[in-house]
Design a binder for these strands. Structure first.
Lengths: 228, 228
DNA sequence: CCGAGAACGTGTACCGAGTCAATTCTTCTA
DNA sequence: TAGAAGAATTGACTCGGTACACGTTCTCGG
């Protein structure tokens, strides 16, 4: 059986863990940009080359776990039950994640997770890479939606995917703000749910004439500037 | 005032142009990844450092022009006339660009532009950076929308921005495909307009139950596609 | 049970992108 | 015209990431 992995395999897992531990420790202590991969390698007692053998880039030392979840949204839609719309499936999956305090929707109030999140937000390179992952998740979702709705609607799948993922994004950001402010996940949940409901309603029901300026004002931008 | 620029200023412009010419020439000849910035510098007869003095990164040698248009969508919304909704303003601006065969919506059939576009599509680093610009454009639009719709709606501005920008994206992609296939901009235009109309309709009227799997009920407006 | 070859992880040397302190040159002023 | 101020430019450097070669561990035939 493959119950007992060979010594080689175990060492591999051990190395990966040591690497990740050393990296996160150093990054949190001194900031991502202030730590070189050579230092991470040194701390993990391997060579720099080995780091890149395990991780495809320096960013992956932080964002590796996130990579695993790129296909989640698409999967939730693909695995929906007959009769359920893609939108409903996405919504149900998202709401479940919210209620489960899942970190993938920014609902975890674990201090360690929060600390990592803050570092990501404050490091441009990590932020760009994280957004890249979101974009790929959105692309996968779009493909899944296109497969569901063949015909002329398939062309519009990317639009629907963007709408759905943006709901995720808005609620995610909202949660960050509240959690960083010191609230607990339990406290944040109701507001998050309410916001999600409103966002989904907007998406399902349409924008209508969102953001109509009041007629009769000939200097609209001046009015806006004045509000600042 | 500064009608006649000084020798220094003119030299600066000249250098920038030489840099851009050398870069695009080499990139198109041999591919983006196969040309180092040192080679670009050599061809433009400056030092490598000078390249980074003019361009903030290697990608900017290609995507620099695109950077100037990041705020366009937000501006179109900000400058709308009173009584016009933000959505309508965005739509009007976009349709105008389409009809004007603007390169910013992928409607230019200039061979040189097409060649550059192909290179961007085929080079991961450039693609990532280009998407980063789109994301920033979307963020600016979201901020503008949030300023317009104060109150609880402001929180949903990012969702609306995502919806609008995704329309742009879909039509953009559509145009690419057709133009790469050899069609002229004139030939592509009608289809692009039609697609844009449908996409905007989807955004304004809502998704409904887009992508409902067949389970006997076909009451959905989107299920009429006769798909599956 | 063992030894040769394959496969895999590791270390060294290197490349290209981007940054910093110092130098050169333009321009404005006295 | 001399000289100060400041911008443009540069060579030297750091760091992320890769190609190649070596040593170590698994596998299979005798």
């Amino acid at each position: 059986m493959a119950e007992e992995l060979s010594l080689r395999e175990r060492k591999k897992i051990q190395t990966r863990r040591a690497l990740w531990r050393a990296a996160t420790k150093l990054f949190l202590e001194r900031g991502y940009d202030q730590v070189s991969v050579a230092e991470v390698a040194l701390a993990a007692e391997v060579s720099k080359m080995t780091v890149f053998n395990y991780m495809s880039s320096k960013e992956d030392l932080v964002l590796g776990p996130m990579k695993e979840h790129i296909g989640d949204a698409a999967r939730a839609v693909r695995d929906r039950s007959p009769g359920e719309s893609a939108v409903a499936a996405f919504r149900r999956d998202f709401m479940a994640a919210l209620n489960a305090h899942d970190a993938s929707v920014g609902m975890s109030d674990d201090p360690y997770v929060l600390q990592m999140r803050r570092m990501i937000q404050e490091t441009p390179a990590l932020l760009v890479r994280a957004h890249e992952y979101v974009r790929r998740a959105q692309m996968l979702l779009a493909e899944e939606l296109a497969a569901s709705a063949e015909g002329p609607d398939a062309e519009l799948a990317p639009v629907v995917a963007a709408q759905l993922m943006s709901v995720r994004y808005v609620v995610h950001e909202h949660n960050h703000r509240r959690l960083f402010a010191g609230e607990s996940a339990e406290e944040v949940l109701p507001g998050a749910v309410a916001l999600a409901e409103r966002a989904f309603a907007l998406v399902e029901h349409g924008l209508g004439d969102f953001g109509t300026l009041p007629a009769g004002t000939d200097t609209a931008q001046a009015a806006e500037a004045g509000a600042e």
